[in-house]
Every structure is written in structure tokens, then in C-alpha cells.
Design a binder for these strands. Structure first.
Lengths: 220, 220
DNA sequence: GAGTGGTCTAGACCACAGG
DNA sequence: CTGTGGTCTAGACCACTCC
């Protein structure tokens, strides 16, 4: 089985949303519709819809139908996840612009530094200002971060041992505000995170998000 | 169907882990074991295990088995903890002012409502705007919330089953801003949280915090 | 080879929403 | 009432791991 049927159905649904055929609040085909379209059992369709509902891509109402969910940018705190993955899971296009990628001189703060802007369908959604320990990721500067996010690279080369984070609401510096194309006076949701690997600090990052189109969510 | 079978299985598994009977890395019963134990179809067991795997509570390896995952646990952020406790733990004085404590009329949103301001050494640090399900906490209105926080009362009378939360950076409404003695234009850190108990929504709360003197922190 | 999880089927009954 | 999603069954075949 190359690609499971339920995954094909998910891809189809996400594709319809990504391409703009279905918009927020639209009623999507019912389970029985999709059963006929794809020629599978209802349980298979149900799994696809339930998965996307858990991802908040769709909203299901018993007795009424399944709708396209609101385009809420979200993230989870309990897992270090690539923002690129999250955006793609929501059926949108991720892209990144590298603003800074340098080696900071010796002294306190010595190490690699990168500043990126992550975009969802071309709309800036996160500014990532990162310091990286050269001892743990010596090849950091040679990566193409428009293809692989720093996070994806780091979890690969430096297995995560411990994470500390801090969340604040802050008015952004002008530079950040402009990079996120935010109006003056709009607050940012700032996630400051330090990761440790092999007993050393691996990376310290400030993630700035526009408060009016980003939130962290979770459950337990 | 009071509680779905798959939920009962999830509760059982989570209970074994929370209570320490099973520890990280332990092999949990196979699907066929659980089928026999609970007397349900394998698909039902599969759903329970797949759900917990998606939540990173379990790790599944095809051909090998299902294991208890690493303790990806809620931190102070999502932990339902009394703000009074947190303040006292920091060695400061907690006090609360009750602004609203009423029974909302019938219709959507019917139930109890309370609005409190929590203070740390007399400085307002959190506005708590809460809706409570009367069926789960009938004695809610009779409590003295200057002595016991709503949260402390609720976890006592309605055992926590599930929590959903959302964190945003927002400019506060004027009322909230004044209650927190914040300057105009200062952002708030807003934690929106819904708790469930005995299969029902127990409480929905908006917790507003001044961005310049409050942050969520945690680690794992 | 025996046991595991991954997926799928073709039915079924139920609760709920809407006209 | 019809149509929707929510759940469940009792099988099945497959890919994989481990012995």
C-alpha cells in the first residue's frame, strides 16, 4: 500500500482548502459523499475527517455536517515542532526568508546566529532570531534554511535533552514589527526557548508572532 | 452511550501511566490483549491506542509493540494550578477581589459567572473571567473566593478529565486594562482555558495578565 | 513462524440537526 | 422525517520485528 486511502482523502481535502476551492465555513462533502467519490468504506472516510478535525483543519457538527475551520495559526508547546510542518499540515504553503546568517565573534554570545522570517502563503507569521552552539552544530552556516528550517536541522544533529521556554506578550521592536507587517501598537506573542543537548546549551531562540493571527493551543 | 468504549480504554491506559504502574519505555498490552480485557473489537482498541500515540503518550512500533512514551508533560503553563499557590510559593502575599458573582439567566451561556482580580502583594496580576457549569458545581455561588480561589474549589468538586487551552497576545478591553492598572497600549497575555469533568464542560475561563509583569514559563 | 501494529471492509445502531 | 456525524463489530490482509 503505497499511500493509505485515508491519507489520499486527507490530501484531497487539504488540497481543496489550500487551493481556495473551499473557504472558511464552507460545508465539505459528507462522509457518504466521500465514500462514493473514493470507493472506500465509511470508516476510512471517517478516519480522514476525524484526523483533520483533530488538527482543527475541519470542524464537525453531529447532525449538521463538516465545515472548513477558521484559519488559525497555532502551535503546541509540548512538542518542538517545525513551523513548516504545521503550516503544511494546515494545507498552506510555507516559505522562509533568511535575513541574517553569521558567525558572531568571540566573547559572550559567541556562536552562530540566524534571523529568519517564516511565511504562510506569503504572509509573515514568525520571526525567528536564533543563537546556536557551534560545538553541537558545526555545519549550521552551510545549511539552506529556505529548504530546511533551523529547527529541523538542529533536532537532527543534536538530540533534544531539555527545553526551557517562556511566553510573553510584548510590543515588538520596530524591526520585528516591520518584518511581520504589523500595525503600530499591535502586540506580539513571544516564545523564548532554550534547548539543551549533550549537557550543553544547544540553541537559544526568540520566536515573535503577530498577536492578531497567532496563538498557542494544547490540551491534556 | 455514556462514555465511548475507546475513551474508557484511553482512561485506563492513562491511569496506569499517571499512577506509575507503567513507566517510560514499558511495553503496554497489545491490541489483542486489550481486545480480550475489554471485550471490544480490535478497531476500537486501535483507535484508543492511535489517539494516545498522536498525543505522544504512547509510542507505537509496527511489529514490535506499544510503549509508554517520554513524559511530555504539562508545565506550569498548562498545569491547573492555583495562582494563589504560585504567588505564595514565590513568598508573596495573595489576595483576591470579587467583581462579579452571579447566575446568568437561561439560554446560551446559562450558568454561573464570576470575575475576580488576583493580586500579588496588592498589585493586580490576573483578571479571571469564568463561566461554571451549575450541574457540576451547584454550590459555586456560596463560596468565599477571597479565601479559596474558584480553581481550588472546582478541582475539589469536579475531578478534572480534560483541559483545552489557548494562549494569545491581545490588547485588553478598557475594563480589563483598568482592573490591572495598565497603561494604554500595553498588551495582555490571555490564557483561555476550558475544562471538562464527567463528560461535560465544567468551566470556561479567560485569564488576563499584564504583559509587562507576567509570563508563562516551563520546561521538559 | 508467531506476534505485533497498519489498514480496510461492509455492514450496524445511535444521537443530533434541520426542514 | 432525512441526512448528518459518532461509534462499534467481526472479520480480513498486509508489513514489520523478533526469536
Amino acid at each position: 500500500m503505497a499511500r493509505p486511502a485515508y491519507q489520499a482523502i486527507k490530501d484531497y481535502l487539504v488540497g481543496q482548502i489550500r487551493s481556495g476551492v473551499w473557504k472558511e465555513g464552507d460545508l465539505v462533502p459528507s462522509e457518504n459523499d466521500l465514500v462514493r467519490t473514493f470507493g472506500v468504506a465509511r470508516m476510512t472516510v471517517n478516519r480522514a475527517l476525524r484526523d483533520l478535525s483533530a488538527d482543527q483543519v475541519l470542524v464537525r457538527v453531529q447532525g449538521a455536517g463538516t465545515y472548513v475551520g477558521p484559519p488559525v495559526y497555532q502551535s503546541t508547546l509540548v512538542e518542538i515542532r517545525s513551523i513548516a510542518d504545521e503550516i503544511r499540515d494546515r494545507g498552506h504553503q510555507h516559505s522562509a526568508v533568511v535575513l541574517v546568517l553569521t558567525k558572531e565573534p568571540d566573547g559572550p554570545g559567541a556562536g552562530f546566529r540566524s534571523v529568519l522570517v517564516h511565511q504562510e502563503d506569503g504572509v509573515p507569521i514568525q520571526v525567528e532570531d536564533r543563537w546556536v552552539n557551534p560545538a553541537l552544530a558545526p555545519g549550521y552556516l552551510d545549511q539552506d534554511f529556505t529548504l530546511t528550517t533551523p529547527n529541523e536541522y538542529l533536532v537532527r544533529v543534536a538530540p533534544l535533552e531539555r527545553v526551557e521556554y517562556r511566553i510573553e506578550a510584548r510590543l515588538p521592536p520596530d524591526q520585528i514589527r516591520h518584518a511581520l507587517t504589523m500595525d503600530e501598537g499591535e502586540p506580539c506573542l513571544l516564545l523564548h526557548r532554550r534547548t539543551f543537548s549533550k549537557g550543553q546549551a544547544a540553541s537559544v531562540v526568540d520566536l515573535w508572532h503577530p498577536g492578531n493571527r497567532f496563538r498557542f493551543t494544547g490540551h491534556f
